[in-house]
Structures are given as C-alpha cells and as structure tokens.
Write a protein that binds this DNA or RNA. Structure first.
Lengths: 357, 357
DNA sequence: CTGAAAGCGCTTACAG
DNA sequence: CTGAAAGCGCTTACAG
C-alpha cells in the first residue's frame, strides 16, 4: 500500500467537474471577488460588468457551492424545522409551506423531530443548531412554546421563528395562529344552531393551543350567556383514543350534551365513535365540531364540521420571514411591527345540526 | 463608509467560538492530520495517541465542522428524501425511520418533495443533487420507479436507495416492500370468510404498488378458484374521493359484491361512505379491506381491516444501507446479496365479517 | 467600481 | 505510525 489511510470516499465519476467561481472569473476577465460580488448582489459592481458576468454564469451553468459559501460565511444555507407535533399532516403541510417560500432561494430544508420529554432534548437541540450552523430554524408547537429553546437560540445567535397560538415572543420571532378566534367560531356556530347543553374536550395542557381553543370557546359562550359547567369539560390528549373516552364520559352526563366541541379533528373522530357506541346518532342526537380540518375531518362519517388552520400558509410565512431577516441587514427587524397573524375559518359539514328540541 | 460591500451576515454573538481541529491538535501535541485520522477512524494511529486525542475531543467538546469536511470531501453530510407520495403519514413515517438510522451518525435529513408531472422536474432534481452534493438519497414511490431518475443519479455518482414494491434495480439500490404478499393476504382473509362475489378498487396505474396489490389479490383468488370479473374491478386514484365513487359503482352491480378490497386505506374509507349512502351496512352487508394501516384505518367506523406496511422500518433500513455503503469501501457492495425485503401483515378489525348467507 | 492576499476548517497526496 | 504543504470553493478585510 503506497498510499495512506483509506477514508470514506465517493464514486467520483460524474463526467466533467462542475464550473467554479474561478472559471467564471477567468471567462469574464475579472477577479473572483467581483464574481462573488455579483453572486451576493453587492451594489458595487458596474452594470455592464454585472451583466457580462451573469451571462457567463448562465452560459456555463455555474452555481456557487453551498459548502464553500457556508464555510466562508460561517453559516450553512440550511433552514431547520424542529417539531414535536404528533400529527403527520400538520408536519407535512408545514414542510410544504416552508418549501413554497424556499424554492429557488438556495436554501434547503432540514427536518428535526424531537421529544421534549427526552432528558437529553435540550443538549441535543443545542448540538444540532451549533454543528449545522443553521441559517435559521422554525419551531412548531409545542417546542415553540419552550422558552429554554429560545434562550439557546439567542445565545448561539441563530435566527428563528416560533409558531404559536399567542404572541409568546417579539413580533420578529413569531407567527401567530389565533386559535382563540377559532374557538369562538365553533361556539358561535353551535349557539346559532340552538345548542345550550354543550360539552368540551380540551387538548393536553402542555399545548398552548389547548388553552386558546378553550378560551375562545368559553368567551363566546359567555358573551351569549351560555354556561359551560366544569363537568362538561374533559381533558383529552389530541389523540383519537382520548376522543373516544372523553366523548363516552360526556355522553353519560345528565342532561346529556346535544353538542360536543373537540379541540382537534382526531378527538372529534373519536367522539363520533363514542356516539355510535352509545347508540346515538350524529348530528340528530349530538352535534360534533372538530379543529384543524385535516384529511380525517372529511373522511369520517358524517364529515366533520371543523375549524381550518392555514398550516401551509403559516409555514410559508415563517420561511419567508426567516429568509428575509437573514438576507437583509440585521437592523431591518422592525420591532414595532405587529407579529404576522393568520386566521382560522369555520368549515361547516354534516356533523352539526339544530339542537334536538 | 470605509468598508466595502455589505453582504448578508449573521448576528455573530454566541460567546466563545467553537473549538476547531487546530485546538485539538495543539492540546494533544500532534499535527492536525493525526486528529483528522482519529475523526475518520483511520487504523493508522497508535492506540495511545488515539485515546489521548479522543479524550481531548470529549473534554473541549470538539465536533468537526460539517461544512469544512464537506468542502474537503467534495460531498455534503446530507441525506435526501425525495418523494411525491401524496400521503402525509407515509412521508412522516419514512422520515422518522430514516432518522432512526441517522441519529448520532453526523448526517442530516434534507426533504425534497417533487412533482413528476412538472416539466422541469428532472432538471430540478439534477440541480438539487448536484448542488448539494448529497451523500445519498432515498426515493419513495412513485419517483422511485422512474428510471430517468436512476440514470441521473448514476451519472452524477450519487448513492441512492429506491423503495419499491418489486425489485426494479440491483439489490444494492433497493428495498422492496412486497405488496403482492399483502394483496394475497387480503384475498385469503375474504375467501376464508366465505365471500365469493368480491369487488376490487385499484390505485393509479402510475404506481407500481397498484399492480402488485392487485396482482397478489388476483393470484390468491385464482388459487382458490374464485373469480374477479372485469366489471368488479374499478380504477381508483388512492384518494378518499375515488374510493367513494368507485365504491358507489361497485355497489350498483348485480349480484352486488359482499366484499370490497380497496388498494389503500383512504379509498377504503371512501367505500365506507358509499356503503352508508347506499343504505347498506358494513360489515353486515358488505365487508371492506384497506391497505397501509395508517391512522385513518382505525379512526373510521367501523375500524378497517387492512394490511400493514412497515413504512418506518423501511425508512430505517434504507438510511442504514445508505450510510453503510457510503462509509464503507466502495467495493463493499455485494451484488449477489438479495435485496432487503419487508413483509406486510394483515390486521383484522371490524370492517370484515362472514359473507351474508 | 475592482483586485491580491489571507482565511474559513477540514482532507488529500506525498514523504518520511 | 506521523507530519508539512497544498487545496476544496468560496468570502473577508484591506487597499487602491
């Protein structure tokens, strides 16, 4: 063995090698620094020079190496999505939304599911962010609601956007989903249908959205002088099974609720099972409202009346904001601006009807 | 302005900067090349030296910069997931499985949804792979079944694993899911319940799994001398809506089928709606079998008998194989070995029952 | 408006 | 078993 070690190496075929900044510089008859200026949109390049360089770049199909840029810039061109949300559709919609904004930007999306209950969670998170030198990271509930995570990001100096149902941070770092409004919409709908004996199934208390959805529901009922007694409120876990069991309990109450609002679609689907097992009918005996409007809402029978959250849109806004903040001057953050917000919307289907007389 | 241009720059706080290979080398009193050897597990380092270096690495919390390694290695430490599968749960399970294998390996997961119908699809795909110099990429159906994609990957010299229901490639490049077996299991179950008039709803022909699931179903029925006439076969699209419409058509046939096998859970859920709208009951009048065992299967009423595919497991195997192939010697690929395969399993719930008399 | 030199943090080839 | 030099493809500071 005349050579040294044998480290992992790649197959190395691939035809002619990719053009580099040096090729562009040579062809354009300028220094590579000038090419670099064009790549990075510096205003200090003569229009003519810029055009010539851009032409050559297009001609030879040059595209700057993200690795090399990353090394020189001391940060990667990666944007992270950190989530611990159990719902696959939420996750995928989020990813799609972020990619909508990232397409053509040169950034790539790195996904990082995590578990806040894991004892090494914070250490792992820190290592991930530091190692990868992410350009920015988007956090979804419930990780987004963990202030220890914020502290780490501030320490490292990594840009971030937190998705949350309330403004838990400065406007520059957040996109709010206004779940409270959604809760109000659900209550309004049921009240307008004449329901007065209503049950509620909350999500787990570790999710801020649980409190918001319930809070909005409560408020609207109160505004309409309707009561939501404590025993008509059950604590679920945002899972199908918890919907079944909480629904079963609610239906045992006397007087029996004529409507149930479950804080997400999974649980609402579970309530439908509980209704059927109790020998009752939806919506004739009991109306049901969900929250999210994921696929499951339209697949169950009867199709669920629910509150739609614009998840993909939120993802797009988050990534846009991140890219804008990173590419712009640091001073561009405008702290006086309000946090961008989206609004949920009621979707009426077949699981709700007039209160039985 | 005494300085030059003002390129995007990061907040730059972050306290002391991260230790580099030079720090380790200095502290250990060796050259950085020796540290590099330790990082890359070269055998040509004295045991004592190695231990000393590893101790120092742990002490100061050194972790090699992926960007710098990437630049020197001429490849990134990123693994891609390219998908055009419409089902969120499939996508998320796949990601989780891949991450199971990637945890602690130093690789990160970059997601890349795509649309094969987009005219720029192939060009975009090539650019993505070339630019990012991915360590490897996992392709899921139906992109995984596109041979033009394989050609591009071979040209570029990027490692890849294709997930498919049949061995469409050399064993080194594939993980097979054996959907045919699953189709057989569905047929066997229905036959054993005494059904003889059976309907089938296929997936879109662009998915190989459509043909496999149907093929297995056909074979098993034939083995048992049962017929599946052409008009008892409908072409669906793996969507809920197509399940509703195909189910509706099947129920108009005379004699009416007493059982329907839909090639995925979404469509099976749609069939349940069709049954209900026709004033029939499941499973008393019509039994239904799905495929995948995603969440929807247990959320609908009645909970679906279905065929479970180990998606997460498949994802884990794929990433493991990719990492193994990349880190090992190139000649390590063993082309005589069979392609790793997984088996689907029947899950019996409440949507199937004995054939009505 | 433009460039020559040095550097980002690693690895490769070559020597010993 | 170990190291000094050069290089991966970009950008930064400094000059002009």
């Amino acid at each position: 063995m005349t050579d040294d070690d044998n480290p992992p190496r790649r197959r190395g075929l691939g035809g002619e090698k990719k053009p580099t900044i040096n090729d562009v510089a040579r062809l354009a008859g300028v220094s590579k620094k000038t090419v670099s200026r064009v790549i990075n949109q510096s205003p200090f390049v003569k229009e003519e020079t810029r055009e010539n360089i851009n032409r050559i770049i297009a001609e030879i199909g040059f595209s700057p190496d993200p690795q090399a840029r990353g090394l020189a810039f001391r940060r990667s061109f990666l944007i992270g999505l950190v989530y611990d949300n159990p719902n696959p559709q939420y996750v995928v919609n989020m990813q799609l939304g972020m990619l909508d904004a990232m397409r053509g930007s040169g950034y790539e999306l790195v996904v990082h599911p995590c578990n806040r209950n894991n004892p090494t969670f914070l250490a792992d998170f820190r290592r991930f962010i530091e190692r990868q030198k992410l350009s920015g990271v988007v956090l979804t509930p419930s990780v987004s609601e963990d202030d220890r995570v914020k502290v780490i990001l501030d320490e490292i100096g990594c840009a971030y956007i937190r998705i949350a149902s309330v403004p838990v941070d400065e406007p520059a770092h957040i996109i709010v989903s206004n779940d409270r409004q959604g809760g109000r919409a659900a209550a309004r709908h049921l009240a307008e249908l004449g329901h007065t004996t209503i049950g509620f199934i909350s999500g787990p208390p570790s999710f801020r959205s649980s409190h918001e959805r319930r809070g909005g529901f409560d408020e609207e009922l109160k505004d309409r002088k309707l009561k939501l007694p404590d025993d008509y409120v059950m604590q679920g876990a945002y899972t199908f099974e918890s919907g079944v069991s909480c629904g079963t309990e609610l239906l045992k109450l006397s007087p029996q609720p004529t409507a149930i609002f479950a804080a997400n679609d999974e649980m609402a689907a579970g309530v439908l099972h509980a209704i059927r097992r109790a020998g009752l009918k939806c919506p004739e005996d009991v109306s049901v409202v969900g929250f999210d409007d994921f696929q499951i809402a339209s697949s169950v029978w009867p199709p669920l009346t629910t509150v739609r959250t614009p998840t993909r849109e939120i993802g797009r806004m988050a990534a846009e904001k991140l890219i804008g903040a990173t590419d712009a001057d640091d001073d561009d953050e405008n702290p006086r601006e309000a946090a961008p917000a989206t609004s949920p919307a009621l979707v009426v289907r077949d699981s709700t009807g007039p209160a039985p007389r």
